[in-house]
Simulated assay, not measured.
Amino acid sequence: MSSSDIFIGETIGTAVLILLGGGVCAAVTLKSSKARNAGWLAITFGWGFAVLTGAYLAGGVSGAHLNPAVTVGLAIQGGTEWGHVPLYLGSQLLGAMIGALLVWAVYYGQFHAHLTDPEIIEAQPTEEAMVDQAAAPKAGPVLGIFSTGPEIRNGVQNVVTEIIATVVLVLAILTQGLNNEGNGIGVLGALITALVVVGIGLSLGGPTGYAINPVRDLGPRIVHALLPLPNKGGSDWGYAWVPIVGPLVGGALAGGLYNLAFA
């Protein structure tokens, strides 16, 4: 697998993953969207289909890791060369940022209508009301479209949740989803992985929003911070380490567990 294959496949595949996954979050969240308030089921299945589409697009090119946790797990398992890991991770982050920008482009009018709506503006807490930063962090009204956040802000619990959910994801990929070369997701594996993502969202996604992918959170969070969105509020950088550390640890644990129990 060449460097250009990795870059092209991971950038395009991750961009489509975030476009469709962030897109369903935008559709459910924003006013003037036909899918507004469609709920958690729509979000979980939307992310599952996003994974399926991105994996099918990139599978034959780069192996469709689309997730640093998957790349780390495969490197520990032995299916991916460690020398390729930085290129995978950089391409995934770039793709995630492109995907987030495309979500903004698709829902441009809805973002503006939502963020300039008096009801939305009035619902945001004032600086004086946000004395307890742990209970009321400075997160904007559309940040959830771009990145994840906890229902109960407890760093240890939140990290453990992300670790456990990511172990399930990566272990499922390593045991059921690899292609014939063992360096990425196969055709049947893409479908299995998409269903696993839906299952994780339904069962384990409630506490933190199930990032289970560092660039899925970090790339769009960076875009949220940079976009000229009116009244967008903060990007909650104090929480941003959780969906990075948790999935990376989970991916590493899954790779080690695979070598111990399944290899």
Rank of each mutant, 00 (worst) to 15 (best):
I8Q: 04
G9C: 01
E10P: 03
I12A: 11
G21K: 02
G21L: 01
G23T: 07
A27Y: 00
V28E: 10
L30V: 00
K31G: 08
S33C: 04
A38P: 06
I43S: 13
I43A: 13
T44I: 01
F45A: 15
A50T: 13
A50G: 14
G54N: 11
G54R: 00
A55E: 11
A55I: 04
A58M: 01
S62K: 06
G63F: 01
G63E: 10
P68Q: 02
T71H: 12
T71L: 06
G73H: 07
A75F: 05
I76N: 05
Q77M: 13
H84E: 08
L89D: 07
G90A: 04
S91F: 01
A96F: 00
L101E: 15
V103D: 10
W104T: 07
Y107L: 15
Y107H: 14
Y107K: 15
F111M: 08
A113H: 08
L115S: 11
D117F: 00
E119K: 03
I121F: 01
I121W: 02
E122R: 07
P125G: 10
E127L: 13
E127G: 09
E128N: 13
D132T: 12
A134H: 04
A135P: 15
L143Q: 10
I145T: 12
I145Y: 13
V156Y: 11
V156M: 08
V159N: 07
A165T: 12
V167T: 03
V167Q: 09
V170L: 03
L171N: 12
L174W: 08
N179D: 12
E181L: 08
E181H: 03
I185W: 00
I185L: 04
I192D: 13
T193S: 02
V197Q: 05
L202Y: 11
S203C: 15
L204K: 07
G209Y: 05
A211H: 09
P214I: 06
V215E: 05
D217F: 03
G219R: 03
A225W: 02
A225L: 06
N231K: 02
G234H: 06
S235P: 07
G238L: 05
Y239I: 01
W241V: 05
V242D: 10
P243N: 12
P243T: 14
P243A: 15
G246E: 11
L248Q: 02
L257S: 08
N259Y: 08
L260W: 14
L260G: 14
A263S: 13
